[in-house]
């Protein structure tokens, strides 16, 4: 049984279709929701929370249709919003306790639970301070505590490491890893590829309201295009080798001093590279296989749509 099953959901803001038939499934663990700004990631999260109405489509949580669950669905979901989402003038523990009560915890239990989760996220010493005195990293952790207070099964995290320093980011990702180890499912919406690489086993790429790719990260890095770094030795600077690669249908990106980055399709391997090098009148004396990075997956998915996304 999948934790979250989304089927063909569409969301419209006026005449603009923000989500256009999004379908994917989450079996568990950590799933990255990737996409450039304006792709529809936050809209998807809001749709799952019922904060925006669905124009069509449906989704289910733990096998139960969201329409049948009604508001009770949100007792099983925790949400970390992207921006602010904290009430100034309230202490950390009071804020988290309030969120706990809103999720149905009795007052005393909510307060106790607030102390527990604040200790878990490392804010036990600051819990009585007002939230507006918290640093950016502390605020993000406070929001995570608010999302955990009612012990949800699914966590929707919208840019949880936004604005955090490297140490804070690592701690936040560490918390997320531990949350997944506790058996919870995390849907991490972000445009920071390194966060997804560090945490997620599965990734869903959104662009212009549509799913461009939904794969396991491990499967992707082993499949499709293969990336190699090769050292060419021969006459000239390797123009003949680059031309030969081009004729073979490969991408050859020249680097310094005869080094080339080659992108070969599935099925081609080192033998093909040596052959092409010979035909070009030279030889390859260094051959290193590169793991495909998530960035290349991401760009490739966007390029399928006929455009590149500058700035990544």
């Amino acid at each position: 049984m999948s934790v979250l099953s989304v089927h063909d959901i569409r969301v419209k803001y006026g005449s603009t279709e923000a989500l256009r038939g999004v379908t994917f499934e989450v079996q568990g663990g950590a799933v990255g929701l990737l996409g450039p700004n304006g792709a529809g990631k936050s809209t998807l999260i809001k749709a799952l929370l019922g904060l925006v109405p669905l124009a069509s489509g449906a989704f289910s949580l733990m096998g139960q249709d969201s329409r049948a669950l009604g508001p009770a669905l949100r007792d099983r979901v925790g949400y970390v919003p992207e921006r602010e989402g904290l009430r100034p003038g309230t202490s950390g523990v009071a804020w988290v306790a309030l969120l706990g009560e809103l999720s149905g915890l009795p007052r005393r239990a909510a307060v106790e639970r607030a102390h527990e989760v604040l200790q878990y996220v490392g804010l036990e010493e600051s819990r009585y301070r007002n939230v507006e005195t918290f640093s950016t990293g502390m605020r993000q952790r406070l929001k995570l505590a608010g999302a955990l207070v009612h012990d949800p099964a699914l966590l929707l995290l919208d840019e949880p490491t936004s604005g955090m320093d490297p140490v804070g980011r690592e701690e936040m990702l560490g918390l997320c890893r531990d949350i997944v180890r506790q058996g919870k499912t995390v849907l991490l919406s972000t445009h920071i590829l390194k966060d997804v690489e560090a945490l997620c086993a599965q990734v869903v790429i959104l662009h212009r309201g549509q799913v461009q790719a939904g794969v396991s990260v491990e499967d992707w890095t082993r499949s499709e295009a293969q990336h190699f770094l090769v050292q060419w030795e021969g006459e000239g600077r390797g123009e003949a080798f680059a031309a030969a690669c081009g004729r073979a249908g490969w991408t050859a990106e020249p680097r310094k001093d005869g080094l080339f980055k080659l992108v070969l399709p599935a099925g081609e391997g080192p033998r093909s590279v040596f052959r092409v090098a010979r035909e070009a009148g030279g030889a390859v004396n260094r051959f290193v296989r590169e793991e495909t990075s998530l960035e290349e997956l991401f760009l490739s998915a966007l390029q399928k749509n006929g455009e590149t996304h500058a700035g990544l």
Partner: peptide, 16 residues
């Protein structure tokens, strides 16, 4: 790491 403080599940009652 901060999470070594331990996460505890909640299985108490919930208000209607």
């Amino acid at each position: 790491p901060v999470y070594e403080q331990g996460y505890e599940a909640y299985d108490g009652r919930r208000n209607p």
